[in-house]
Nucleic acid binder design. Structure first.
Lengths: 358, 358
DNA sequence: TTGTAAGCGTTATCAG
DNA sequence: CTGATAACGCTTACAA
C-alpha cells in the first residue's frame, strides 16, 4: 500500500508558473492578496499539473488538523453496530460537517486507548462513556487538547453534555407502577471495562436510582435478585433476560437501560412463550430509531441522541476545556417517556402475588 | 478550539538529554541502533518531559498516515445510522485494527465528495457504492492512492469485492414462487445521486435481474408498476410500500432490496391491517443483525457484510491498485437465503386472481 | 503585489 | 555505533 508516483508539489507549480511557493499558496488560500490574473494563471497551471496541496503538510504548517476525535473505550466493531452510538455519531457528524471539520474515531488500539490517543491527530476530543477509572482523561488534559465529555457522570468537573438520566428512569418506572406492576426486572448496562458494553457504568447508576425512586414512592423495594446486567446489545438483552428467568425471576415488567437490550429481552420473552405486553411489559431507554419498528413498538425513554452529538461539537468549538483553564461549561438536555405498545396493565393473575414482592 | 501550551518536541528532549534529535527518534523507533543505556536515559528524560511524538510531523516525514479511508457518496449522518453500513465498517475496523491502521470516513464535504477526497490524508481508500457516474474514481486513480471498490458493479475494471447479488436475488424470488406467490412488489434502492440511499444503483440492477430470472422461470413477468424505489432506510421502506399501495398495488409478496426497507414495509403493511406473513410475505436483503429481532423474524438474503469489510482491507493491503498498474484482483463472496418467519404460502383467496398478473 | 526565508516536528541519509 | 544535516510540503511573517 505505497504511493506509486510522486505527487506534484507546490514547488513544481511555482516553478512552472515562474513564481514563488508563497504565491501559489496565496493563490489558493488568500487570493485577495494577489493580482487577479496572477491568481488565475497560477490556478490554471496548478490544475494543469493536477496539483492538490498535501493535507498532512498543511496540517503541520498550520498546526491544526481540521479534525475532531470521538473517543470511546469500546472497540470500533461494537461502536459501529450500536444504534445508540450510530445516532450520536450522526449528530456529531452533522455539526462537524457544518463547521468544515472531519471526524475521527479514537478507540483502543491493540487494547490500549492511551496509545490510540497518542496516535490520533485531532484538534479536539469528544469523549463518550469514559468512567472515572479511565486514566485517559488525565492524558488528554495534559495534552492540552480541548475536550468535552458525554455520558460520563463520573466526571462532573469536566465540561460536557448532561441529560437527565435519573428523571427519565423515574418516568419509566412510574409508568409501570401506574399500570399496576409490582414485580420488576431491571436490565442494566455492564461496566465499560467489560469492553463489549456500549454505555458507561455511570448512567447505569443514575438510571437505577431513578427506577428506585419511583418504586419506593409506591412502596416497592428492588432486590438485588431483580437486577441483571450485560453488554448493551440485543444479544446482551436476550442473554440477560434468560439468565434472570433461569434463576427464577418471574417479573411482569422489565426496565431495560438500553433499547437494544429491551429488544433482546422482548425476543427472549417471546421465545419463552410470554406475550408482550400481555404477560410482560417492557420499557427501554434511549428511543433509538428501531424502537419504532419493533413489534410491538417499544415504550421507552426518549433522549435527544443526535442533538447530544451536535451539542457536544458546539461546546467543543465554543471552548471545551483548555489546559488549566477556568470553570467548566455544562449543557443540559431533557428526557421524556414515549409510551408505545410494549407496556400494558399488569396481568390480573399475577397481581395477587404482588405483596410478598419482598 | 486551539491548543493551549506548546507541546514538548523532540528537540526539547534532545537538548535535555544532551543528544541529537536523531538519537531521540532512534530511542523510540529503532532502539537497537543505540547503546542500551543511552536508550533508557533518553526514554526517562522523555517521559519526564511528557514527550509524545507529534503524529502529524511523523506522517509528513514518513510519508504515510497509517490510515485507510472509507469513501461513500452518502453523508455521514445516513452512513452511521444504517445497519448495513455499520456492519461493513465494523468489518473494516476489525481488519484495520489488526494491521495497526486507523480508519477515516470520506464523505461529501459541503456537498462535494471531490473536496473531501482532497482533504483526506490516508494511505489507501475503500470506496463503497460508487457508481460509474462518480468522477471520484478517476480522481482517486490519478492521485495514485491504492484503492478497492465495494458494491460497485458498475466498475468492473477496478479491484474490488464482489458478492453474488444476482444469485441471492434469484433465491429470494424462487422461494416466494415456490410458496405460490404470483403477485409481487419489488422495493428497490434509489440511485445514489438522490443522496439519502445507502446502497448503489449498481446492486439494484443486479438484484432486479435475479428476481426476474426466477419469476420468468415460473412464467411471471414483473411489470414496471410492480416496482418502487426509495432510500435504503426504514422510513424509505414505509414510504415505498405506502406509495405502491396507494397506486393500487395489492401484492401477496414483497421483495425488498435491503433489510431496512423490508422492516419499514412490514410496519407499513401492518399499519394497513395486513398480517405478515399471513396476508403478505416479505423477503429482505443483507441479513443485517436486526433482521433476527423483528417480529416476525425476517426472511432475507444473507451476505457476509462484515467479511466484505475485512476482505476489502486485506485486498487493499495486498496491493489494491497502484497507478497505471496491471490486472485487477477480485474477491468473490457467497450469498444465501435465510428463511425465517416473514414468509409463508400465498393466501388462498388471492391465488385465484393471479393469472391476470398484469 | 510578489518574493524570501524561517519555521512546523519528524524521520532518513550519510558522514564521522 | 552515533549524531549532524537535510529533506518532507506547506504556511506565514517579513521584506522588497
Amino acid at each position: 500500500m505505497e504511493q506509486a508516483t510522486r505527487r506534484t508539489t507546490i514547488a513544481d507549480v511555482a516553478r512552472a508558473a515562474g513564481v514563488s511557493k508563497a504565491a501559489v499558496s496565496f493563490a489558493f488560500n488568500t487570493p485577495e492578496r494577489l493580482s487577479a490574473d496572477t491568481v488565475t494563471r497560477i490556478r490554471e497551471i496548478a490544475t494543469g499539473l493536477d496539483y492538490r496541496p498535501d493535507p498532512v503538510a498543511r496540517m503541520l504548517a498550520q498546526r491544526r488538523t481540521g479534525t475532531i476525535g470521538i473517543l470511546t473505550p469500546q472497540g470500533l466493531d461494537v461502536i459501529f453496530t450500536n444504534p445508540y452510538f450510530g445516532e450520536f455519531s450522526a449528530g456529531v457528524a452533522t455539526a462537524a460537517e457544518a463547521a468544515g471539520l472531519a471526524i475521527q474515531f479514537i478507540s483502543p488500539l491493540h487494547g490500549s486507548l492511551t496509545r490510540a490517543v497518542d496516535r490520533a491527530s485531532v484538534d479536539g476530543i469528544i469523549a463518550v462513556g469514559l468512567g472515572a477509572a479511565h486514566p485517559e482523561v488525565g492524558q488528554i488534559r495534559r495534552s492540552g487538547l480541548p475536550f468535552v465529555v458525554v455520558d460520563s457522570t463520573a466526571l462532573p468537573d469536566e465540561p460536557g453534555i448532561e441529560v437527565d438520566d435519573e428523571g427519565g428512569a423515574r418516568l419509566a418506572a412510574e409508568h409501570l407502577v401506574e399500570l399496576g406492576h409490582r414485580d420488576f426486572l431491571v436490565i442494566g448496562i455492564e461496566p465499560p471495562s467489560a469492553s463489549s458494553g456500549m454505555e458507561p457504568a455511570g448512567v447505569t447508576a443514575l438510571r437505577l436510582r431513578g427506577y428506585r425512586e419511583s418504586m419506593s414512592a409506591a412502596g416497592i423495594e428492588l432486590s438485588d435478585a431483580e437486577m441483571v446486567v450485560g453488554p448493551a446489545s440485543m444479544e446482551g438483552g436476550i442473554d440477560a433476560f434468560r439468565r434472570a428467568w433461569a434463576s427464577g425471576a418471574r417479573p411482569t415488567a422489565v426496565l431495560a437501560m438500553s433499547d437494544a437490550m429491551a429488544i433482546g429481552a422482548m425476543r427472549a420473552a417471546r421465545d419463552l412463550g410470554l406475550g408482550v405486553p400481555a404477560d410482560l411489559s417492557i420499557v427501554g431507554y434511549d428511543d433509538v430509531d428501531v424502537a419504532q419498528y419493533t413489534d410491538p413498538p417499544l415504550t421507552t425513554v426518549h433522549q435527544p441522541i443526535r442533538r447530544k452529538g451536535e451539542e457536544a461539537v458546539r461546546l467543543l468549538l465554543a471552548g471545551g476545556r483548555h489546559r488549566d483553564e477556568g470553570p467548566t461549561e455544562q449543557q443540559h438536555l431533557e428526557t421524556r417517556l414515549v409510551v408505545r405498545g410494549s407496556t400494558a396493565r399488569a396481568p390480573r393473575g399475577r397481581e395477587e402475588v404482588v405483596d410478598d414482592g419482598r
